[in-house]
């Protein structure tokens, strides 16, 4: 068993850097430096709360690997 300790949460930081939205979904402006994308987690989702400085679009962006629906009582 490999017990060597690795820097805490380095992989999470790396995923954030890789997946944080780089461009505004509305106007396509560069978010890096001008906008902001704050990542928070909810259940299995990673949510990027995003704001674009150029067009002021504000919203949450949630990458997904699977569409999940629900079945109403019947």
């Amino acid at each position: 068993m490999n017990t060597a300790r690795r820097p805490a949460y380095a992989a999470d930081a790396e995923h954030h850097r890789r997946d944080a939205p780089r461009y505004c979904p509305r106007c396509g402006c560069d978010l890096v430096g001008t906008g902001i994308a704050v990542e928070f987690w909810e259940g299995t989702n990673r949510v990027f709360h995003t704001w674009c400085a150029a067009c002021r679009w504000t919203g949450d962006i949630t990458p997904m690997t699977q569409m999940v629906g629900h079945e109403p009582e019947h």
């Binding site: 954030h16 928070f40 909810e42 709360h49």
Partner: peptide, 18 residues
């Protein structure tokens, strides 16, 4: 903050940064 883990209960923090 590159290795923190925010949740839904941290929306105030998220809002402040924005």
């Amino acid at each position: 903050r590159t290795t923190e883990h925010l949740g839904r209960s941290d929306i105030g923090v998220t809002m402040l940064r924005r």
